[in-house]
């Protein structure tokens, strides 16, 4: 009847990533989540490609860990 020891059950908190899309050229990039971020928010960060300063948050989620081959 021995159930899982607590240490095996512990889940680790993995902060999600924020995915941004440039409203002018469509380039997508990601960074770590910052407070105040939410999906479909327009931020005035600068696009690394075209320099446009309006990016749309298109997703916030935890990236899957790559499986070790």
């Amino acid at each position: 009847m021995e159930s899982f020891p607590p240490s095996k059950m512990m889940l680790r908190y993995v902060p999600p990533l924020t995915f941004l899309k440039c409203t002018s050229c469509g380039t997508e990039n990601s960074r770590t989540f910052k407070e105040e971020d939410y999906v479909f928010k327009k931020t005035n960060e600068v696009c690394p490609k075209c320099g446009n300063n309006e990016l749309l948050i298109v997703g916030i989620y935890v990236k899957e860990r790559e499986k070790k081959a």
């Binding site: 889940l11 908190y13 993995v14 902060p15 999600p16 997703g59 916030i60 989620y61 935890v62 990236k63 899957e64």
Partner: peptide, 13 residues
């Protein structure tokens, strides 16, 4: 049930 209340995973998004 765990995935439902924890930060959204990529596969779900």
């Amino acid at each position: 049930i765990v995935e439902a209340i924890t930060p959204m995973r990529e596969v779900i998004a």
